[in-house]
């Protein structure tokens, strides 16, 4: 039920916003530790979202209330806080511009993966959610792995119409390191001028149909 409500909001966003962006940022301060920041920016569709959040349901999906969204963030932050090696968990909710952020510090990539998994379990309320390594890192490489086909993707896949409606949605990933990057595996990924950051931008509908498009192996 909880999962359905989260999916409800996201799908409703997808269908009515059309234009929104997600930004995933991982910034390493040394070879091990760093900061994770996830941003959902629906500012471009704020007028429609303002109307949408007043509804209880849309297209058969439950639309959560503002306090419920806050609850999800709170639950996720509490779950992430419990992961050893995680600190400074924080989230922001801006219901004027519909921009939401979730951030925390991690001591190593393994901890980052644990935190992301803990957040997923707490939000979806599914204790049996399979553990999934979002990132892998070593001295030589950093990897962004393929997202498994989650329920949101399955739901969106059900109707090609939904995907057409979100043709303007963007997903951005930025990875910043303390050492220079030699090469990237994803042809869409770009290395920064100082050589220590990589940015990958993709259309969200494409990632939903083919999660492999967001994968990247960065070699140092």
């Amino acid at each position: 039920m909880k999962t359905r409500r989260v999916i409800g909001l996201l799908c409703a966003c997808l269908c009515l916003c059309g234009c929104f962006e997600t930004i995933e940022e991982v910034t390493y301060t040394d070879s091990q530790s760093g900061t994770y920041l996830l941003t959902l920016n629906c500012s471009k569709s704020k007028s429609r979202l303002k109307a949408l959040v007043k509804l209880d349901t849309f297209m058969g999906l439950n639309i959560p209330k503002q306090w419920e969204v806050s609850n999800y963030f709170n639950t996720a932050s509490l779950a992430v806080e419990k992961v050893p090696g995680i600190s400074q968990v924080n989230y922001t909710e801006d219901y004027t511009n519909f921009i939401f952020t979730f951030t925390f510090k991690f001591d190593k990539t393994e901890t980052l993966n644990k935190a992301i998994n803990a957040a997923a379990v707490s939000i979806t309320n599914k204790s049996n959610l399979p553990y999934y390594n979002v990132f892998n890192s070593s001295e030589e490489t950093f990897q962004r792995n393929k997202t498994p086909n989650d329920s949101m993707a399955r739901l969106a896949k059900k109707s090609s119409q939904h995907l057409k409606l979100i043709s303007g949605a963007k997903a951005t990933a930025i990875y910043r390191f303390h050492k220079p990057v030699k090469k990237v595996s994803n042809s869409k990924a770009v290395i920064s001028k100082n050589g220590k950051a990589v940015m990958l931008q993709q259309d969200l509908p494409k990632i939903i149909t083919d999660p492999a498009l967001f994968t990247n192996t960065i070699t140092f």
Partner: peptide, 11 residues
């Protein structure tokens, strides 16, 4: 008006 982001040379 809406909020968005741009990125400098170092992203």
């Amino acid at each position: 008006k809406y909020t968005t982001y741009d990125y400098d040379d170092d992203f």
